[in-house]
Design a protein around this nucleic acid. Structure first.
Length: 687
RNA sequence: GCGCCCGUAGCUCAGCUGGAUAGAGCGUCUGCCUCCGGAGCAGAAGGUCGCGCGUUCGAAUCGCGCCGGGCGUACCA
């Protein structure tokens, strides 16, 4: 970790100082004592009156052969000169209290100085509040979304999209070069199923003629295929004198194999692989419809990709790699022509790589794609955001890449996430049964509810607010915060009603807090209590904005979300110059406010919460998980709400205090804006 | 059967590289709008952290064994 990173993180900077203190006190450093750096790290005390940061001394006890309470006590006695020196050097704020509480060394910063320290970082746009952390030199590809071209996206895809998009933003903010890519599953029998359905029941129709989004148009055909196939299977079962309701798995599969529709879809796949021009033309035509639909959904969510990979392009490379593996004796060809990898020594079953008819399977194309990715970008790390049902698949894939001695194989990571379940036993979300929680429908529903709540609650009454665009931003705020709060590995109980709740620990509550601060600042400007020149500003970076969705086909539709691209930029709501100034404000200029006045408990708590943003980002990046950022934003929001009710801003006792509190408030708004952008959530300045 | 993941308050979840009295939100109950935006604040009630054993000065956190749930274990993707 670079020194620059440490300087920008109060907990890390303080830990450094305490480690120096220990070295002086004990006569030897942690390293010399045989202890890791983490043996003396800052934690938050359980109760705020104990202090701002605490250092448990247990790990030192053994090495120093002393009671941890005694160590803490002796450290506390030796500390003041050290801490003063560090404060004088500007690496930490001045410390008002340094006491031993049993085996803990508890530090309390001078309240006003703490505020000054962190507000200074924020209002100068320092990392990670504004700019990204210093470059780590590491590049990471994040593959996410990976839709199929036979149906629209559902809630499971939404979780994937949000994890991927947020992860990209978090890693970028943490100083990595990030390459977001999408891998489209555009070949296979599931695709020819919807093609066959189109030939049978959709010929002559188009998404335009039906007034449907392209992906939905194709998805309906796929569902139709499933229904008609079930009918054929039932007929076959009755012919055989079986009850169609009571088929075992094997029999069911056998009947499916014999159904005319299945045979038709397979025939189409063979024609596709042979390059039959008519089949290819239909495939391309239907794909274009689907890509247009995806473009719209991605644009709405804020998903951007540097490159799209298509399995129809990579499966051939996969076959080549497997052939080479056979030549090298790594893989084995069976008499029937199929090719297998022997994995028994790994506790895994043998894995088929090429079917006996020479066609490719899932892992064939993934091998090809993996190689192509590294040829294209030569990155250090390749992250796959894919559902946990694929855990075994990726274990095998990575194993094969190591067997093939790909030099970059160790850099492959599967970011696995759990299922999204509906409440009331509605079961797994599957589009094949037509029982969908469709992504677009969900986004629309959330926007509608947000719209209704805004009207009912008398919100969003300021001039110039586009309520449709705003409602979509708030609805998405609710959804994104709801899904990203939960640890990735856990299955999610997706309760639409709970998501639609806009109170408590929710995205809209954070957005509201931001909007309220903007409103206060606008009022201060309007009343002349503040001049635009008092504001410190910093433009929020949006490194992925110019990538676009990368879709091969742009969507024709112009939904309300198109008026301002998703991502990180604040949504224009109130339209005048004052509003614009507030929107990019990150505090007051250093000579226009005195943070030393911020000595109340509520003010100290907000400052401390602000100071822990870098730690939340650091943890999120290390764990490849947005949830620490989400949790931090909710905490900051609550801390600010308490401050807001306890400490009047515009009606503060003095001009100076009013300015200091505005400074604090604007820094909170800037941090919320920055944090929300890491989750792909926009922060409107009025709502 | 075997493998991986999950099990914390009525519900949804934080906390898990071991550390102080296990935290939020929702829901329930009590208060708070002539006052900067009440999508808010203050407070109450609610927990043998699935069960057991172990390691440790110390376990929700680590190990082992059970129990419950999910996913996987296809010449599907």
């Amino acid at each position: 970790m670079s020194d620059a990173t440490k300087r920008q993180d109060l907990a890390l900077a303080t830990a450094d100082v305490v480690r120096d203190l220990l070295a002086t006190y004990a006569g030897s450093s942690l390293e010399e004592l045989g202890l890791p750096e983490g043996a003396l790290a800052a934690v938050r005390p359980p109760r705020p009156e104990m202090g701002d940061l605490a250092f448990p001394c247990f790990p030192l006890a053994k090495a120093l052969r002393k009671n941890p309470a005694q160590i803490a006590s002796e450290l506390a006695q030796a500390a003041p000169p050290h801490l003063a020196a560090a404060a004088a050097a500007g690496s930490i704020p001045p410390v008002a209290g340094c006491v031993a509480a049993g085996p803990y060394l508890n530090l309390t910063f001078e309240p006003g100085s703490l505020a000054g320290f962190v507000l200074g970082q924020i209002s100068s746009g320092q990392a990670p509040y504004g700019a990204a952390l210093p470059p780590t030199g590491r590049s990471t590809m994040v593959e996410y979304s990976a839709p199929n071209t036979n149906k629209p996206m559902h809630v499971g895809h939404v979780r994937n999209n949000l994890l991927g998009l947020s992860l990209c933003r978090i890693l970028e903010a943490a100083g990595e070069e990030v390459i977001p890519v999408n891998l489209v599953n555009d070949r296979g029998v599931h695709i020819t199923k919807s093609m066959l359905a189109y030939q049978k029941w959709g010929a002559g129709k188009t998404p335009e003629s039906e007034g449907q989004k392209g992906d939905h148009f194709v998805g309906k055909l796929y569902v139709r295929f499933g229904m008609e196939l079930a009918r054929e299977k039932a007929a076959l079962a009755e012919e055989a004198g079986l009850d169609p309701q009571k088929l075992d798995k094997e029999k069911d599969r056998e009947l499916e194999d014999r159904a005319p529709l299945t045979l038709g879809a397979r025939a189409l796949l063979r024609k596709w692989e042979q390059g039959d021009p008519e089949v290819r033309a239909l495939w391309e035509r239907m794909n274009r419809w689907v890509y247009s639909g995806f473009d719209e959904t991605y644009h709405r969510l804020g998903c951007t990709f540097r490159k799209w990979y298509f399995e129809s392009n990579t499966y051939q490379l996969g076959k080549k790699i497997i052939d080479e593996g056979v030549t090298r004796g790594l893989f084995h060809r069976h008499p029937d022509g199929s090719i297998w990898a022997h994995l028994e020594d790994e506790g895994l079953k043998d894995k088929i790589l090429i079917r006996s008819d020479g066609t490719s399977v899932y892992i064939t194309q993934d091998l090809g794609t993996a190689v192509l990715k590294f040829e294209d970008f030569d990155m250090d790390r390749s992250v796959y955001v894919v559902a946990s049902e694929q855990n075994l698949h990726f274990r095998i894939l990575f194993r094969l890449l190591r067997q093939l001695e790909m030099p970059w194989a160790a850099g492959c990571v599967h970011l696995s996430y759990g299922m999204v379940n509906l409440p009331h036993g509605q079961g797994k979300l599957k589009s094949r049964e037509g029982r969908t929680a469709d992504a677009d429908a969900l986004l629309n529903e959330l926007a509608t509810i947000a719209h209704r709540k805004a009207v009912e609650g008398g919100y969003a009454t300021e001039a110039g607010i586009d309520l449709d665009a705003l409602a979509d931003i708030i609805g998405q705020g609710a959804l994104k915060m709801y899904l990203l709060q939960v640890g990735a590995e856990k299955d999610i109980q997706f309760d639409p009603d709970a998501t639609l709740d806009f109170e408590g620990d929710t995205g809209p509550a954070v957005q509201y807090s931001h909007a309220r601060i903007c409103s206060i600042a606008r009022k201060a400007l309007a009343k002349g209590m503040l001049a635009a020149g008092d504001l410190a500003s910093w433009a929020l970076p949006d490194p992925f904005a110019d990538l676009g969705t990368g879709s091969p086909v742009r969507a024709p539709a112009e939904g309300p979300w198109r008026k301002a691209p998703s991502g990180g930029a604040a949504q224009p709501a109130a339209g005048d110059a004052a509003a614009a100034a507030v929107r990019s404000a990150v505090g007051l200029r250093p000579d226009r406010a005195d943070p030393a006045l911020l000595v109340r408990e509520e003010e100290r708590r907000v400052s401390l919460e602000l100071a822990s943003f870098p730690a939340a980002l650091r943890q999120a990046a290390a764990q490849l998980s947005p949830s620490p950022v989400a949790a931090h934003l909710l905490e900051l929001t609550k801390a600010y709400a308490r401050f807001y009710h306890a400490c009047p801003v515009l009606r503060a006792e003095s001009q100076e205090l009013m300015r200091a509190r505005l400074h604090l408030s604007l820094a909170v708004a800037a941090t919320l804006r920055r944090g929300l952008s890491l989750l792909g959530i926009q922060a409107p300045d009025a709502m």
